[in-house]
Computed example of a mutant assay.
Amino acid sequence: MNVSLFSWIVILLAALAANLPFFNQQLFALVPLKKDAAYIKPLWVRLIELLVLYFVVGLVAHFLEAGIGNIFSQGWEFYAITGCLFLVLAYPGYVLRYLRKKHG
Protein backbone atom coordinates (compact mmCIF):
# COMPACT_ATOMS: atom_id res chain seq x y z
CA MET A 1 0.00 0.00 0.00
CA ASN A 2 0.90 3.65 -0.18
CA VAL A 3 2.92 5.29 2.62
CA SER A 4 0.76 8.40 2.37
CA LEU A 5 -2.40 6.33 2.85
CA PHE A 6 -0.96 4.69 5.96
CA SER A 7 -0.06 8.12 7.33
CA TRP A 8 -3.62 9.36 6.89
CA ILE A 9 -5.00 6.18 8.45
CA VAL A 10 -2.85 6.72 11.55
CA ILE A 11 -3.82 10.41 11.78
CA LEU A 12 -7.56 9.66 11.50
CA LEU A 13 -7.29 6.78 13.95
CA ALA A 14 -5.47 9.05 16.41
CA ALA A 15 -8.12 11.77 16.09
CA LEU A 16 -10.94 9.28 16.69
CA ALA A 17 -9.15 7.56 19.58
CA ALA A 18 -8.25 10.85 21.25
CA ASN A 19 -11.88 11.97 21.34
CA LEU A 20 -13.42 8.59 22.21
CA PRO A 21 -13.15 8.94 26.02
CA PHE A 22 -15.05 12.23 25.98
CA PHE A 23 -18.01 11.15 23.85
CA ASN A 24 -19.33 8.23 25.93
CA GLN A 25 -19.82 7.08 29.51
CA GLN A 26 -18.45 3.57 29.00
CA LEU A 27 -14.91 2.31 29.41
CA PHE A 28 -13.32 2.26 25.93
CA ALA A 29 -16.87 2.60 24.52
CA LEU A 30 -17.45 -1.08 25.31
CA VAL A 31 -17.65 -1.77 29.04
CA PRO A 32 -20.43 -0.09 31.04
CA LEU A 33 -19.08 1.19 34.36
CA LYS A 34 -22.36 1.66 36.25
CA LYS A 35 -25.93 0.70 35.56
CA ASP A 36 -27.13 4.07 36.85
CA ALA A 37 -28.34 6.28 33.99
CA ALA A 38 -27.16 9.45 35.74
CA TYR A 39 -23.57 8.16 36.10
CA ILE A 40 -20.86 10.46 34.76
CA LYS A 41 -17.43 8.98 34.13
CA PRO A 42 -14.79 10.84 36.19
CA LEU A 43 -12.02 12.82 34.50
CA TRP A 44 -9.25 10.56 35.80
CA VAL A 45 -10.85 7.54 34.09
CA ARG A 46 -11.02 9.52 30.86
CA LEU A 47 -7.33 10.43 31.16
CA ILE A 48 -6.33 6.80 31.75
CA GLU A 49 -8.38 5.83 28.69
CA LEU A 50 -6.59 8.55 26.73
CA LEU A 51 -3.20 7.18 27.77
CA VAL A 52 -4.10 3.59 26.86
CA LEU A 53 -5.54 4.67 23.51
CA TYR A 54 -2.32 6.63 22.79
CA PHE A 55 -0.35 3.40 23.14
CA VAL A 56 -2.89 1.44 21.06
CA VAL A 57 -2.59 3.96 18.22
CA GLY A 58 1.19 3.77 18.59
CA LEU A 59 1.09 -0.02 18.24
CA VAL A 60 -1.08 0.21 15.14
CA ALA A 61 1.31 2.76 13.65
CA HIS A 62 4.25 0.52 14.52
CA PHE A 63 2.68 -2.47 12.78
CA LEU A 64 1.81 -0.39 9.72
CA GLU A 65 5.40 0.86 9.58
CA ALA A 66 6.68 -2.71 9.88
CA GLY A 67 4.46 -3.71 6.98
CA ILE A 68 5.96 -0.99 4.79
CA GLY A 69 9.59 -1.88 5.45
CA ASN A 70 12.19 -0.68 7.92
CA ILE A 71 11.20 0.23 11.47
CA PHE A 72 13.00 3.33 12.68
CA SER A 73 14.02 3.59 16.32
CA GLN A 74 12.56 6.58 18.17
CA GLY A 75 13.94 8.62 21.03
CA TRP A 76 12.13 10.36 23.85
CA GLU A 77 11.56 13.42 21.65
CA PHE A 78 9.30 11.43 19.32
CA TYR A 79 7.12 10.24 22.21
CA ALA A 80 6.96 13.73 23.74
CA ILE A 81 5.83 15.25 20.44
CA THR A 82 3.30 12.54 19.60
CA GLY A 83 1.91 12.65 23.15
CA CYS A 84 1.37 16.39 22.87
CA LEU A 85 -0.17 15.95 19.43
CA PHE A 86 -2.54 13.33 20.84
CA LEU A 87 -3.61 15.78 23.55
CA VAL A 88 -4.19 18.47 20.93
CA LEU A 89 -6.33 16.04 18.94
CA ALA A 90 -8.35 15.35 22.13
CA TYR A 91 -9.14 19.03 22.65
CA PRO A 92 -12.46 19.10 20.69
CA GLY A 93 -13.84 16.23 22.78
CA TYR A 94 -12.70 17.91 26.00
CA VAL A 95 -14.34 21.19 25.00
CA LEU A 96 -17.63 19.50 24.12
CA ARG A 97 -17.63 17.51 27.38
CA TYR A 98 -16.48 20.11 29.93
CA LEU A 99 -16.47 23.63 28.49
CA ARG A 100 -19.62 23.77 26.39
CA LYS A 101 -22.43 25.68 28.02
CA LYS A 102 -25.44 23.50 28.74
CA HIS A 103 -28.80 25.07 27.80
CA GLY A 104 -31.98 24.12 29.53
Rank of each mutant, 00 (worst) to 15 (best):
M1H: 14
L5D: 14
F6R: 15
W8I: 14
A18V: 04
F22D: 00
F22E: 03
Q25M: 12
Q26A: 12
F28M: 05
L30I: 12
L30M: 11
P32S: 08
P32D: 10
P32W: 12
D36S: 13
A38T: 10
A38V: 11
I40H: 15
L43N: 08
L43A: 12
V45R: 11
V45Y: 07
R46V: 06
L47A: 15
E49I: 00
E49L: 03
L50R: 00
L50V: 03
Y54E: 01
Y54H: 00
V56P: 04
V57R: 00
G58S: 02
G58D: 01
L59Q: 09
V60C: 11
A61Y: 00
H62P: 02
I68Y: 12
G69T: 04
G69N: 09
N70Q: 15
I71C: 09
I71L: 11
S73D: 13
Q74W: 12
Q74M: 10
G75M: 06
F78K: 06
F78G: 04
F78E: 06
A80R: 04
A80H: 06
L85R: 06
V88C: 08
V88D: 00
L89N: 01
L89A: 08
L89Q: 06
A90M: 01
P92R: 07
P92S: 01
L96P: 04
R97E: 06
R97H: 13
R97Y: 06
L99G: 08
R100C: 12
H103C: 02
